[in-house]
């Protein structure tokens, strides 16, 4: 057994242990903390699976932003740490049996791969050069399956509107209920001044490098979102009111440009979401750059929650 597989086995054992304790641990806070750690380990697992793009996404969104969101939520509902109503023993047993069945079924499938493992990797690599991209995952996201990516942006926008829709009517158009510190916290302000410049540079780098290496609009956008949230939480900047035109404009700029270029493909490249020959790369980069901004704003606002305070005039 090679040392790499020892590492893998240790990693898997740790992931499973932490995953299980996320479910079993008593307090919600401990569970959320476990989950933050879990996201971190998962991104290492993705590295081991040679999926660096996914590892970046998992580190940024799965671990980072989701952890942030959950920690914020658990912080708000701390007083609700009441005794947990536990479901009955028979139900737990039945659920355990069902889950064991599912796991067994999936394990059988995992252990019996098809004789000839189908793969689209060669086809992707064959068709990638005309787009000018070097990163096959970006190629799939923005060239071959661009429709999915476009729809997914709409999904994020809808989720954001769904979150906003939970606001009380009087607070509509106001600022999200993201708490800032009542009094300035020097270490936090220090962090909020020092980290964002690095983060912004890294976010832009992610977006730019995504064309040829792992990275891209999602990962870059998430970093930017996190930095913005940090600045707001530290009290250095106010959260924007959701009725702001610039905010709405930024939110839709990416999907809009994507859609516009997709429609232009009809005229200039004879298919919806096709890129005209020779212009593919600059167009994709433009789409990615705008999407990065849109994703950053959308994710930050998603994490910030529904508006709670009416807009101060």
């Amino acid at each position: 057994m090679s040392i790499a597989s020892v590492f893998d086995i240790a990693l898997v054992a740790l992931i499973l242990a932490i995953g299980a304790s996320t479910i079993l641990v008593r307090t919600a806070f401990a569970a959320v903390v476990m989950f933050a750690v879990y996201g971190l380990l998962l991104s290492i697992a993705w590295v081991r699976l040679h999926a660096v793009d996914v590892a970046l996404t998992e580190a940024a969104i799965g671990g980072g932003m989701t952890g942030l969101l959950l920690l914020g939520a658990v912080a708000r509902s701390r007083s609700d740490d009441v005794d947990r109503v536990r479901v009955g023993y028979p139900v737990r047993l039945a659920a355990g049996g069902l889950c064991a069945l599912v796991v067994a079924g999936l394990a059988i499938v995992v252990l019996h791969p098809p004789a000839a493992v189908p793969t689209l990797a060669p086809v992707v690599m064959e068709n990638l050069p005309p787009s000018g991209l070097g990163n096959p995952v970006a190629g799939v996201l923005f060239v071959f399956r661009a429709l999915d990516t476009l729809l997914e942006k709409v999904v994020v926008l809808l989720a954001l509107l769904g979150v906003w829709s939970l606001a009380p009517d009087r607070a509509w158009g106001g600022t999200p209920g993201l708490q800032v510190y009542a009094k300035p916290d020097p270490p936090l302000i220090f962090l909020a001044q020092l980290l964002p410049p690095v983060g912004i540079v890294f976010g832009i780098y992610m977006c730019w490098v995504g064309a040829k290496d792992p990275g891209g609009a999602f990962q870059g956008g998430t970093v930017l979102a996190a930095m913005w949230l940090l600045v707001i939480v530290a009290g250095l900047q106010k959260a924007p009111a959701i009725s702001r035109l610039w905010l709405r404009g930024l939110l839709i700029a990416g999907p809009m440009l994507f859609l516009a270029i997709g429609l232009a493909g009809w005229v200039f490249a004879d298919a919806f979401l096709a890129y005209p020959e020779g212009y593919a790369k600059p167009l994709i980069v433009a789409v990615e750059a705008t999407l990065t901004l849109s994703i950053a704003v959308a994710l930050a606002m998603l994490a910030a929650g529904p508006p709670e305070r009416a807009q101060q005039q």
């Binding site: 971190l40 991104s43 590295v47 660096v52 590892a55 970046l56 580190a59 940024a60 671990g63 980072g64 952890g67 942030l68 980290l195 690095v198 983060g199 890294f202 992610m206 490098v209 792992p214 990275g215 990962q219 970093v223 996190a226």
Partner: peptide, 11 residues
């Protein structure tokens, strides 16, 4: 993979 490390460090 170093980029992933940067990401973790940022968060």
């Amino acid at each position: 993979v170093v980029d992933v490390a940067v990401m973790l460090a940022l968060f």
